[in-house]
Simulated scan of single mutants.
Amino acid sequence: MEYPIKASCQCGQVSYQLTVPPQRVIACYCQECQKLSTSPFSITAVVARSAIEFTGEMKQWSRIAESGNENRAKFCPQCGTRIYHYNPQTPELIKLKLKPVGASVDTSFAPSLHIFISETPSWYQLPQGITAYKKGEGAPK
């Protein structure tokens, strides 16, 4: 896979260029991520802020997570696509929500860790052989 790679929101107003592979890709099954993705889980690519360049206007929304940490979300004000999340206490790491399109990037954005699996809907079957943690279990950072 060759970097940089590019992606955009649904309307194209916000885009990014990522210069290196994600540090980690996580599938989160918590109820907040289910709301965000309207699916059983949400995919998050953890990347260094210094490895990504954004273009376009973004708006911000925030909430307090169960952990007590603030979770800030950046999104496109035109189409509403969530772009990334970050904790203001660790602004050097962002949790990218946009997945680049194309067969060559699929493996770079495949989840290597599944968290909050205890909140998985009963009708969803988790993949076999995954590294997974239930709610409250300490996943590696």
Score class of each variant (00 low, 15 high):
residue 28 C to G: 03
residue 130 I to N: 00
residue 16 Y to A: 11
residue 86 Y to D: 11
residue 77 P to L: 06
residue 100 P to N: 05
residue 78 Q to R: 10
residue 66 E to D: 14
residue 106 D to S: 11
residue 23 Q to K: 15
residue 104 S to K: 08
residue 40 P to W: 03
residue 19 T to F: 14
residue 47 V to Y: 07
residue 134 K to Y: 01
residue 90 T to K: 07
residue 96 L to A: 10
residue 89 Q to S: 15
residue 22 P to I: 07
residue 131 T to Y: 00
residue 109 F to L: 08
residue 20 V to H: 11
residue 141 K to L: 06
residue 47 V to G: 10
residue 83 I to C: 09
residue 53 E to W: 01
residue 18 L to C: 06
residue 1 M to D: 08
residue 65 A to D: 04
residue 68 G to E: 00
residue 8 S to E: 09
residue 67 S to E: 10
residue 65 A to Q: 08
residue 72 R to Q: 12
residue 48 A to E: 15
residue 68 G to K: 04
residue 33 C to F: 08
residue 127 P to Y: 00
residue 88 P to S: 13
residue 121 P to L: 09
residue 9 C to V: 02
residue 8 S to D: 10
residue 85 H to K: 04
residue 99 K to Q: 13
residue 105 V to K: 01
residue 2 E to Q: 11
residue 40 P to N: 04
residue 4 P to T: 11
residue 79 C to N: 01
residue 110 A to G: 03
residue 39 S to G: 14
residue 57 E to V: 12
residue 68 G to V: 07
residue 109 F to R: 02
residue 122 S to I: 05
residue 89 Q to P: 09
residue 47 V to L: 11
residue 50 S to R: 03
residue 139 A to Y: 05
residue 122 S to T: 12
residue 119 E to L: 09
residue 22 P to S: 04
residue 125 Q to C: 08
residue 81 T to A: 14
residue 95 K to A: 13
residue 62 S to V: 01
residue 80 G to T: 10
residue 88 P to W: 09
residue 56 G to V: 08
residue 136 G to T: 06
residue 37 S to W: 03
residue 25 V to Q: 04
residue 125 Q to T: 12
residue 47 V to F: 10
residue 43 I to V: 15
residue 20 V to W: 03
residue 73 A to C: 11
residue 120 T to K: 13
residue 138 G to C: 03
residue 128 Q to E: 09
residue 1 M to P: 13
residue 52 I to R: 00
residue 96 L to W: 04
residue 103 A to C: 03
residue 116 F to G: 03
residue 104 S to T: 12
residue 38 T to E: 12
residue 2 E to G: 11
residue 5 I to H: 02
residue 85 H to Q: 10
residue 104 S to A: 13
residue 15 S to V: 02
residue 75 F to V: 04
residue 133 Y to P: 00
residue 46 V to Q: 11
residue 95 K to G: 15
residue 37 S to N: 10
residue 123 W to M: 07
residue 114 H to C: 00
residue 11 C to I: 06
residue 100 P to T: 04
residue 57 E to M: 06
residue 91 P to T: 10
residue 112 S to E: 13
residue 34 Q to D: 04
residue 1 M to A: 11
residue 41 F to V: 01
residue 40 P to S: 09
residue 28 C to Q: 03
residue 34 Q to N: 06
residue 112 S to I: 00
residue 129 G to N: 05
residue 90 T to R: 06
residue 3 Y to G: 12
residue 41 F to K: 03
residue 96 L to Y: 10
residue 101 V to E: 13
residue 128 Q to S: 06
residue 112 S to A: 12
residue 112 S to Y: 00
residue 71 N to L: 14
residue 32 E to F: 14
residue 75 F to T: 07
residue 70 E to C: 14
residue 95 K to V: 02
residue 77 P to I: 05
residue 95 K to Q: 12
residue 69 N to R: 09
residue 50 S to N: 14
residue 134 K to A: 14
residue 113 L to G: 00
residue 67 S to K: 02
residue 5 I to Q: 04
residue 119 E to D: 15
residue 51 A to S: 15
residue 120 T to C: 14
residue 36 L to C: 08
residue 56 G to I: 09
residue 10 Q to S: 13
